[in-house]
Simulated assay, not measured.
Amino acid sequence: MKTLLSVLLITLGASLASADAKIGYVDVQRAIEQSSIGKKAKDEMKKEADKRNKDLEKRKTDIDKMREDIEKKRAVLTEEAFTKRAQELQEEMQKFNQLAAKAQGELQKKESDLLEPIVKKMRTVIEKIAKDKGFSMVLQSNPNAQIVLFSTADSDLTEDVIKAVDKEK
């Protein structure tokens, strides 16, 4: 799949180059991370994650104390009492795992909700910059995807996008 995409991009690039097309790229991830609205969203996500982690850590500490207590008293507990306490511990661990999974899902949703308007705004800004600078096409770049293998400095519109998004507020 990656090879097919590369072939398509090379073919597309060759045909656009012959038509004197101007192609640019934007590292959207970097633009989000470095823009003021992206930084604000990241701070909000960090606060939310820290709050949830604090709650989860407290529950984990309680479960660890419960486990230690059961282990300390194992010798003096009847088999029935030990089994009951072990089952209670197991139930608490299951509740903890469910809470952790729920918290993770809620954090992912919150991140998505925070990023959606930012990405929309960036697309609008990218389109305006591309038109203003005469670009026929703008690709999304990302250090991990390696879609853009070579470009000149004036093809990178990322800084322009960051400045424009920050200017709009």
Rank of each mutant, 00 (worst) to 15 (best):
residue 63 I to C: 07
residue 80 E to D: 15
residue 60 K to C: 02
residue 83 T to H: 09
residue 140 Q to P: 03
residue 85 R to H: 10
residue 118 I to Y: 05
residue 12 L to A: 05
residue 69 D to C: 03
residue 163 K to R: 13
residue 107 L to F: 01
residue 54 K to D: 10
residue 66 M to E: 14
residue 65 K to C: 06
residue 39 K to P: 12
residue 128 K to G: 05
residue 101 A to Y: 01
residue 58 K to N: 09
residue 27 D to G: 03
residue 80 E to W: 05
residue 128 K to V: 09
residue 82 F to K: 08
residue 56 L to S: 10
residue 169 K to V: 12
residue 96 F to W: 12
residue 37 I to N: 07
residue 17 A to Y: 03
residue 159 E to R: 09
residue 57 E to G: 05
residue 152 T to S: 12
residue 169 K to S: 14
residue 134 G to H: 09
residue 30 R to M: 11
residue 130 A to D: 03
residue 131 K to A: 13
residue 163 K to C: 03
residue 57 E to Y: 04
residue 125 V to G: 00
residue 81 A to H: 07
residue 126 I to S: 01
residue 49 A to R: 06
residue 23 I to Q: 01
residue 92 E to D: 12
residue 70 I to K: 02
residue 57 E to R: 10
residue 51 K to S: 12
residue 44 E to M: 12
residue 132 D to H: 04
residue 37 I to R: 06
residue 149 L to H: 08
residue 4 L to V: 08
residue 43 D to T: 14
residue 74 R to W: 03
residue 106 E to G: 01
residue 61 T to Q: 13
residue 78 T to C: 09
residue 35 S to D: 10
residue 53 N to M: 07
residue 7 V to P: 00
residue 136 S to T: 14
residue 14 A to G: 02
residue 121 K to H: 10
residue 43 D to L: 13
residue 85 R to C: 05
residue 53 N to K: 13
residue 55 D to Q: 15
residue 134 G to Q: 11
residue 135 F to D: 04
residue 46 K to W: 05
residue 80 E to M: 09
residue 154 D to P: 06
residue 135 F to H: 07
residue 100 A to I: 00
residue 85 R to A: 15
residue 102 K to R: 11
residue 154 D to T: 13
residue 140 Q to F: 10
residue 140 Q to T: 14
residue 19 A to M: 13
residue 128 K to L: 05
residue 3 T to K: 11
residue 27 D to R: 01
residue 138 V to G: 00
residue 72 K to D: 11
residue 6 S to Q: 13
